[in-house]
Amino acid sequence: MTSENSWYEAGARQRVAALLDPGSFAEFIGPEQREISPHLAIFDLPEQFDDGIIVGHGTLEGRRILVAAQEGRFMGGAFGEVHGAKLTGLLRAARTLGEPVLILFDTGGVRLQEANAGELAIAEIMRALVEARMAGVQVVGLIGGRAGCYGGGSLIAGCCSALIVSEQGRISVSGPEVIETNKGIEEFDSRDRALVWRTMGGKHRYLIGGADAFADDDVLAFREAALIVLAGNGRLDADVLEAEQQRLEHRLHRFGKAHDAIDIWTDIGVSEPTEIPGLATDEFLRRTTNKRETANGAR
């Protein structure tokens, strides 16, 4: 399902423009500053002037907000040194300014050509994100792009106050091909698209508390969801972490032996669970009301 305003089809700049109040976005370190990757030229690979991420500020219903958007079509939205540093800087600014952050994830994880610099960037981002949250800043992740949210990107997403996901969004540490390569096709057939979406897709993540809001594949639906999520508090303290730890232990105990997402949907009491992947958003949300697990501001 795609629409004229499809989040999945849009590029990073289009998403930011449609998400924020019209004309409110101002970019930090724009493409004209040419802060490109210092690593790609060594591999004789093409560079992009913004290194695949846009950071800046704008307003959402008049409220000032910081935003980062990954371009999933440039190197799979992967994190390199500069790409990562731009997000780290934005999160540090958020802490200083006390302004909420939206991260528009669209990433396969770390850019392999920048291995250690990319891995370090992930660690720096996670630290900056948690420090911002400890200072009371909300950091909300939006996931619905073609690259999904994998690898180090999924670890960062796991640190967010809340996640908004569409059916097209996928969240997982290891991607389908990685699992198949390491564990064999019997464990995970990466070419089975239905299996991939059933296991990592937005609907399943929403049902097991891996995401907090479910949105249509539409930029305005993401905007509405962001406004609702930002109205929450996004608290992060020892009590929140303790509660989430207990929830995850319970979840592992309850579903750890399940072989397929459908087993889990059956267990939580969704009617006609095999129909879930084909349901439109309204019907999906209606059928799963009060059935899904909810996270505790940490996951």
């Binding site: 590029g11 493409p31 004209e32 002037f49 371009e71 079509r73 440039f74």
Partner: peptide, 17 residues
């Protein structure tokens, strides 16, 4: 200035100043 496109296979970015 203006920027269009993306660096991907079969695609390009164009920065105009």
């Amino acid at each position: 200035r203006a920027i269009v496109g993306v660096v991907a296979s079969g695609n390009l970015e164009v920065l105009l100043e």
